[in-house]
Amino acid sequence: MDDFIIQDCTLLSRTSTVPPAINLRELRDRLANCRPQVIYHHFCETTLVPSFDNPDYRNDFAVWAKLYIGDRVLAEQLGIINPYAYTDLEKLREEVLEILDQRLSEVYDIASCQSGSEFFFTEAVTVVFDTGLRVSTPEALPEAIGKMTNGSIYYHFLESRRREPVGLDDFSTWLSNFPDQEAGRHNLQMLDYSFSTLTELRNELVQALEKGGAS
């Protein structure tokens, strides 16, 4: 069996060409027309963006709805979306637009944010590189994960879900080559990663594998 190749990635945010939104209607209209990378960034890559906050919600749209336009209903509806459940970003866009259109039909006054708190549409460029590190056995995987950077955790456990085989993390895919690692695989796939920072997620992955017998 091939070794597990530990990749790392670093991400750099950049502005998009989409103007900032000051209210729900502008958010809706801009989101309808932005590049898919913008949607992906605000749903998935935001976890790699430096922050002083550990927000309630894991996507930037929900956080903005709650903190800056004070729409807690919308925040809850957007906050529960699992972006990795969508194999196609256009489907994710459709789902978000549906929620926004529904909300626009419910509210009488469309709240605006304060100046300086607009929603800024950004995207990112990711640089991926081979760390040179390899894992040869499932038993060595927990320790290797424990030493990974946040970039590696993101790349192998979250970003991997966009790649073939779609919807699976790289660790599970590799472990599927080892019939006796079913418990560990199962634990990884049951892990609810929605509420964890990458640092927390690293520890949870190690625990999930160790509980599955890989240690």
């Binding site: 670093t10 430096p50 460029v125």
Partner: peptide, 24 residues
């Protein structure tokens, strides 16, 4: 963290690659 981001930027601008993922 800031050093990492500068190095990342240097890779991006040096690559002349307009895609959103760059393999180095």
């Amino acid at each position: 963290r800031q050093l990492r981001e500068y190095l990342t930027l240097f890779h991006i601008v040096s690559s002349n690659d307009g895609s959103s993922t760059i393999f180095i």
